[in-house]
Write a protein that binds this DNA or RNA. Sequence first.
DNA 1: TAGATTGTTAATCGATTAACAATC
DNA 2: TAGATTGTTAATCGATTAACAATC
Lengths: 205, 205
Amino acid sequence: MNAEKIPDIIIGRLPVYLRALQRMADSGLKTTSSQELGEHVGISAAQIRKDISQFGEFGKQGTGYSIAYLLDKLKAILKVDRIWDVALVGAGDMGHALVRYQGFVNRGFHICMIFDNDKEKVGRKIDSFTIEDTEKMAERLKSAGIKVAMLTVPAQAAQSVADKLVQAGVKAILNYAPISLNVPNNVKVQYIDPSIHLQRMTYYL
Amino acid sequence: MNAEKIPDIIIGRLPVYLRALQRMADSGLKTTSSQELGEHVGISAAQIRKDISQFGEFGKQGTGYSIAYLLDKLKAILKVDRIWDVALVGAGDMGHALVRYQGFVNRGFHICMIFDNDKEKVGRKIDSFTIEDTEKMAERLKSAGIKVAMLTVPAQAAQSVADKLVQAGVKAILNYAPISLNVPNNVKVQYIDPSIHLQRMTYYL
DNA sequence: TAGATTGTTAATCGATTAACAATC
DNA sequence: TAGATTGTTAATCGATTAACAATC
């Protein structure tokens, strides 16, 4: 156990462990080892043990880790032992795909509001949700206490929407717009840009 | 300049520089400095200079970098001074969103084939492309010499599809399925899993 | 020339790995 | 008990930063 600040790079690996453990649990396994988990996620056993041990002694010598127990612990550490309400801004193709994505709710997230600034789209429905006007976003986010948002607007709109989100108290933004966002450092941003990810691979071709 | 192997972590930052420089060029700027570029992307000036200098001396003391020149160099290094034909496997909501995404072609990519194993979907069109049967994928990929693929199939199908892609000569896979893939180490994989990205932020909330 | 900014070196900082005592 | 595997330490490895001569 370690009371000091945990490096960001370790936090970044925990969701990957969580996902692999969940799959193991789903396939009926009860225990695993750092060795076995490492093979699943492509990370050394030593590193997995070191990462996990930052948060407590969750394993047993000789037998490894109880999958159910480690799952519980990791979910609590990552604060996904609950469901976070998430706002989606930008009701284009990507926004539609995310609303219909089935993979959020059992990973700790639930899209509960959709915003767009296109008056044509406002009032329409995506599944059971009505697209709302971005103008009313700040008020709606504040009154619902939303802390997490996904941004699927065009690049040129992204910074100003991000500013509004921050202003409304959002602390975590998953940004699909192809631009680096400027936010206060108590606000976290994660970037998803398929072209960037592809360009990270073409170098090696 | 440096003939040794460039660390992966440096390659990973180049597309971010490229995207920022492109935006600067689009807004009419002609030159920039490591300082200014660093402010745009949130990386220190020293690191940007060090990263760029791995590949040559592209700047000028006193005046900085010519944006057009540095763009050309970075595109050549990342091999996106051309258009890569890309195959998409999985014609669900995410697949549809990617096919319609306008952001690929001026970043070096072009989706040219779409596959699905659902006989209901095979033969239908997404925009101008006809969804093809996964059974015919290997042959189609080989004859077209496709090296890059995007995977938007369900988790339980992802590994077997990845195996087929590798078998057919694909060397770079952008994986949207929420699972770690096992591939030979001459094949690159990049992962996009929105739940993972969100879970990297909830820890800090 | 004077000011600005690069490319590079050395120093610092941080992350990963190897090894093993502890112990289930 | 014997075998397996953890948690942790020390050693290694790699990445970032600070500083500055070179030079545009």
